[in-house]
Amino acid sequence: MYAFNYHKPATVADAAALASQHADGKLLAGGMTLLPTMKQRLAQPSDIIDMGKLNDLKGIEVKDGVVTIKAMTRHVTVATSAEVRKAIPALAELAGGIGDPAVRNRGTIGGSVANNDPAADYPAACLALGATIHTNKRAIAADDFFTGLFETALGEGEIITSISFPAPDKANYQKFRNPASRYAIVGVFVAKKGGDVRVAVTGAGDSGVFRQKDFEAALKANFAVAALDGKHQPEKGLNSDIHADAEYRAHLIGVMAKRAVAAAK
């Protein structure tokens, strides 16, 4: 790691102020992506603003059919929350499948969403469930939040405080893991709410998470596995690497989408 100055603010306002002051600084949530990146010397933040003391950013609330998860809530907490399991079981299952147990014990939803790693799981849930990302400054619809690889709509000094997910009628998330890293090669989140169906794909797109509108249209007409017969994800815009080329990813998006529809509850 390169050297950095360490800060541990006690309030969100202090954290935001520090983040504004140090343009080359980084906010540290669970650190599950940032710390490995720094260890590999692929990031050189001048300052680390540790959010570990921001206890008012921890917790889950379910009200009026909306699950609101505060930013510093760990994956393990989401995965094991009885309230989340009841309201949006797919979201709890997704959280329970992120990384490994030790990662889930440290990693946070806010960190994952703010980082927008193209192979992260939560962005798919945010898009498919039509989540709202709340910051210390405003509320941003998920559709407007993820703007590219590791890019989000967050501005300088802007900190995610919570994310709210309207509970769907049915949803499911299916992930095909990279056999080495275990990150998503393809992750498909399918959610049905009333007449609306959203299908979000992570792990595959060369600009990060995206919605598969062709699949959505088919499933709106008929929310059944068979509705996806003959539907194909185009290869254009998909990643290729030694574990999965674009053709395979495109194919897997179809397979995972069908499995998600079949398993949706």
């Binding site: 360490y6 541990k8 540290l28 650190g31 710390l35 540790d50 147990p101 990662v103 014990n105 440290r106």
Partner: peptide, 16 residues
Amino acid sequence: HVDGDAVKSCTALALS
């Protein structure tokens, strides 16, 4: 274990 949770000690700052 950190406060009872399994944690990868290579991925946590001591100061945290």
